[in-house]
Amino acid sequence: MEETNGGKYPVRLHEFLEIIEYYDNFNDRINFLIDYAEKFKRVPENISVKPYPPENKVEYCESGAYVWTLAEPNSTFKFYFDVENPHGISAMALAKIFDDTLSGETEESILSVPDDIVYKIFGQSLSMGKNLGLTGILLAMKRDVKNFRRMKNVE
């Protein structure tokens, strides 16, 4: 875990934030994020196929984002995503960033990510609705991770 700007972040997310903060020009930052959106990979068919189960749908995300969380044997998690709205570029970018930086992390690391991460990535010009919708992706990941803990405790 690395500390930056008042928050604790898993190492790869911390490194990502350091890079994006380097882009102080708004247009450069946007283009950097679009590169991520273009690398976005949809959930593979061996994990889920359409129509997706409603329990995987991200609440409040108008881009139609879905999250699948798999517990890995070494107490880490792997995340898969889909974004149904072809215009949901921001959701695709964020999903790719989360896959790159949070897949393979532990419960503690994932739950430690501050919910204001979306503002740190996209900047303050994001509308309140858009910000909350994108934050829903992280909240869904955290919800899944907590559910795994509950199930483990029951066992």
């Binding site: 247009n27 946007i30 283009n31 679009i34 273009e38 215009h87 949901g88 921001s90 010009s125 858009k130």
Partner: peptide, 10 residues
Amino acid sequence: SNEDLLLYPS
């Protein structure tokens, strides 16, 4: 004019 700021630049 969009809701998603990344859409036009993409």
